[in-house]
Every structure is written in C-alpha cells, then in structure tokens.
C-alpha cells in the first residue's frame, strides 16, 4: 500500500542524524527549472576535511550555497547537527569565492574580518572591543596581523583569500564551507591555508571545501565527494578517489542526465 501512495508529497523529512555535522537529504537544485544538482544524499563525517571535487559546471559551488540557504531548494532538506540552517547560523562559517566581492570597497582587512562577528551582534549594536580582538586573533592565525589596517584592494590575491579565511575564523563556527579557497593563490598562501585547515581539524571542526585541483586531493583531504550534477561517490579518500570514479566524474558519459535536465527546462519554460 505504501508504495502505491508514495507520492511527491512525501517529502523526506525523515531521519537526519543529530550527531552528523551536515546531512543532506534528497536535495535537488534548479536554475530556471533546469536541475543543476540532482538527488543529493550525503552525511558529512564529524571533524574531517572534506573535498568537493568535480568538473566545471558540476554544481560544486551551487551545492554549498544551497546548503547555506543562499539558493532555494527544489526539493529535499539540509540539517546541521539535526537542525535546519536558520537555527544553526552561529555554527556555520562561509568562505565565498574571492571574485564575489568588489575589493575596491572602502574597508581595511580588519574591517572585513570583523564582519565575521556581525552575525552574533543584534541590530544596531556596533562591534565591541571583544569582537575586534577576535578579529585580530583570526588575522594573526592566518599570518596577516601586520596588514590589519591595509585597504583590501592593496592586498595580493593570496592575502585577500587569507582575509576571507580569517573572517570565517572570526565566526568561530563548528562547520565551515569554503568555495575554492586555493584558486589563484601563491604557494605560501596555499601552505598557510593547509596548515590552517589542519588546525581546524585538530579542534574538531568539520570543513567542506570546493576544490579544483585533483593532484592535491590525496594530500589535503580526509574525505572526498565526487560531484557531477549528482554524487558519483563519496567517502574516505583512499577508498573513493579511484581512477574509475574519477573517470565517471569527469568523463561526460551520462548524457541522459543532460537530456532529462534540458527537457525539464524546455517543458518548464513552454
């Protein structure tokens, strides 16, 4: 009986594990009705560095934006330690892509990092000394203390990336989402970011990182999610990061998915 009446209204609000830092259940995301992420089911393990890997247009950034409620879900749900994002904003930190903002904005590195604390402050209350100190400490942690008063456009690309990381650190979250933090940074920044990630892991934080460089996956991450509109495979790097799975992820063999997505977009529009 249950199978007969299994309809689209039965929307998997079921069992999110409250011990799981990020659990994604049956998530589908569409742009203009065209699905870009299909049926994502994932439970992130606690206290791990997790790489999200896949070709361009695989929906990696979309995935983390959708998790954080920045994009609407066509279906499904996301829970952070068993609760929805709204209730857990305090414990989720975000590092967007560097290109997403205008770096000519009149602000110093310290100003930007202090913004990481805004979520904790009520309306109309300016940041206090304690927030500034937290921001300074975060800058210190990414090795940028000496640049705290420099205008952000006069920082190098790698330094700007570190400022964004420091902003996320200032949030003092339990779970971090990072969108391509390694993109276009110099070698020393890359090393600094890796050190920082390991420090976060040592403190029991869970970090999900969109990553574009397959070469470094084994070295940087504990877990990996191979994504190409769907999850191809996910799990510990040594088990999942195989030649066969990579071929599935990067070889565009599954044209049917595309066809179905196109049909949905076309019929949806017409």
């Amino acid at each position: 009986m249950s199978n007969i009446f299994a309809s689209r209204h039965q929307n998997g609000g079921d069992d999110h594990d409250p011990a799981c830092p990020v659990s994604i259940h049956d998530m589908t995301v569409a742009y203009h009705r065209r699905p870009v992420l299909w049926d994502i089911d994932y439970a992130a393990p606690q206290g791990k560095l997790i790489g999200i890997v896949g070709p361009n247009g695989a929906g990696k950034s979309t995935l983390i934006k959708a998790c954080m409620g920045l994009l609407p879900l066509a279906s499904g749900s996301v829970r952070f330690y068993g609760k929805p994002y709204r209730a857990q904003r305090q414990i989720v930190g975000y590092v967007p892509q560097r290109e997403s903002v205008d770096w000519d904005f009149p602000a110093s590195a310290l100003d930007v990092v202090t913004m990481g604390r805004y979520g904790r402050l009520p309306w109309c209350i300016p940041p206090r000394r304690r927030d500034k100190n937290a921001a300074l400490a975060a800058l210190e942690q990414v090795g940028m203390a000496e640049f705290s008063h420099r205008q952000i456009s006069r920082l190098s690309g790698g330094q700007q990336q570190r400022v964004f990381l420091a902003r996320a650190l200032a949030q003092d979250a339990l779970i971090y989402f990072m969108d391509e933090p390694f993109a276009g940074v110099d070698a020393s920044t890359e090393a600094a970011i890796v050190t920082l990630l390991r420090a976060l892991k040592a403190r029991g934080r869970t970090v999900l990182i969109v990553h574009h460089d397959i070469q470094t996956v084994r070295e940087y991450f504990d877990e990996v999610m191979l994504l190409n509109m769907r999850i191809i495979a996910a799990g510990p790097v040594e088990e999942v990061f195989t030649q066969e799975n990579l071929q599935k992820t990067y070889g565009g063999r599954l044209t049917l998915l595309d066809k179905a997505a196109q049909a949905m977009a076309r019929i949806g529009r017409h």
Binding site: V92, P96, D111, G116
Partner: peptide, 22 residues
C-alpha cells in the same frame, strides 16, 4: 549611524551577510 554595521555588511558582500543571518 545605528545601522552602520548592517549597511556595511550588505554593501560589501550581501551573500556573506545573508549567510551570517543579516
């Protein structure tokens, strides 16, 4: 003056601002 913090956050990076609950 009162909303300086919110205005600054939204002008600089609306997506991040939204992600921290502004």
């Amino acid at each position: 003056g009162l909303l300086f913090k919110e205005f600054r956050a939204v002008c600089f990076d609306p997506q991040f601002a939204s992600s921290i609950g502004v």
